[in-house]
Design a protein around this nucleic acid. Structure first.
Length: 209
DNA sequence: CGTTCGATGCACT
DNA sequence: GTGCATCGAACGT
C-alpha cells in the first residue's frame, strides 16, 4: 500500500515546523521514465520578505510569485543557469515562505536516478546520488515544468511512509551570502547524504574583474 | 587534505 | 550588465 500525498494543511503552518517535520518524509516524482523517490534528510527554511536570503526579499516579482501562492505547491527555479532547486511553499497565501529540499536518501528508482546523474564516467555512489539541492532535482528529473505544481496531487509529491529518520539538528544555512546567521537549516545528524560544506573561516570572496 | 574557478540561463536593476 | 539558495574538476599545500 502506497501512502497518499501529504495534504495542504501540513504546509499551512509555521515554516520552521514544516521544515522539521519534512525530515524523514519521502519526496516522489513520477515521469514516463518511472518513479524516483528518496527520504528527505536535509532542508532549509526561507521565511518572508524580512529574510534577506529569501527570494521574496525584494517583494513580489514574476519569479517569486509561487512563494506568495497557496501552501503545498512547489517552487522550482533555475540557479546558476544549471541547477533546478525545489521548494515546498509554506504558511499561507500572501505569506511568502518555503522549505528548500537539500538532500535525500535514495529509496526508489535508484537505477533511473543513476542514469540521470551519470556523466558518462563512473557510477555515482548511493550517498552522493541525491546529495545537494541541484543533484537531487537532477536525480528525480525535476525541472521548471514542475514549478507551481500541487504537491498534494502529483506527479510530484511528498508522502509519509512512517520512517524513523533519526536525530535532526538546526544549523546555519549553506551557500548564501546574506542572512547567514539564521539557523534555519535542519539536517539529520551524521547522515551520509547530507551536503557538508564546512564553513570556511574567511568566506569572503572578491569577484575580480 | 585545502581552496579556487568555470560552466551556464534567466530574472532583475 | 550583474548576480546568484550549485557542482565538480583543477589546482595548491
Amino acid at each position: 500500500m502506497t501512502p497518499d500525498p501529504i495534504t495542504k494543511s501540513f504546509y499551512a503552518r509555521p515554516t520552521l515546523t514544516v521544515a522539521a517535520e519534512l525530515i524523514g518524509k519521502v519526496l516522489v516524482h513520477e515521469t514516463r521514465a518511472g518513479i524516483a523517490a528518496g527520504m528527505i534528510v536535509e532542508v532549509e527554511a526561507y521565511i518572508g520578505e524580512d529574510d534577506p536570503a529569501c527570494h521574496a526579499a525584494p517583494g513580489p516579482t514574476k519569479r517569486n510569485a509561487p512563494l506568495y501562492g497557496p501552501p503545498g505547491h512547489a517552487y522550482v527555479y533555475l540557479n546558476y543557469g544549471i541547477h533546478n532547486l525545489v521548494n515546498a511553499v509554506t504558511e499561507a497565501e500572501g505569506s511568502p515562505a518555503a522549505v528548500l529540499i537539500r538532500a535525500l536518501e535514495p529509496l526508489d528508482g535508484i537505477e533511473l536516478m543513476q542514469r540521470r546523474r551519470s556523466r558518462g564516467n563512473g557510477p555515482v555512489d548511493l550517498a552522493g546520488l541525491c546529495r545537494g539541492p541541484g543533484n537531487l532535482t537532477q536525480a528525480l528529473g525535476i525541472t521548471l515544468k514542475q514549478n507551481r505544481s500541487d504537491l498534494s496531487r502529483g506527479p510530484l509529491w511528498i508522502e509519509d511512509r512512517g520512517l524513523s529518520p533519526g536525530t535532526a539538528s538546526w544549523s546555519r544555512r549553506i551557500g548564501i551570502r546574506v542572512g547567514v546567521e539564521r539557523p534555519w537549516r535542519c539536517a539529520l545528524v551524521g547522515h551520509p547524504a547530507v551536503s557538508g560544506r564546512p564553513p570556511s573561516p574567511f568566506g569572503l570572496r572578491r569577484a575580480g574583474k
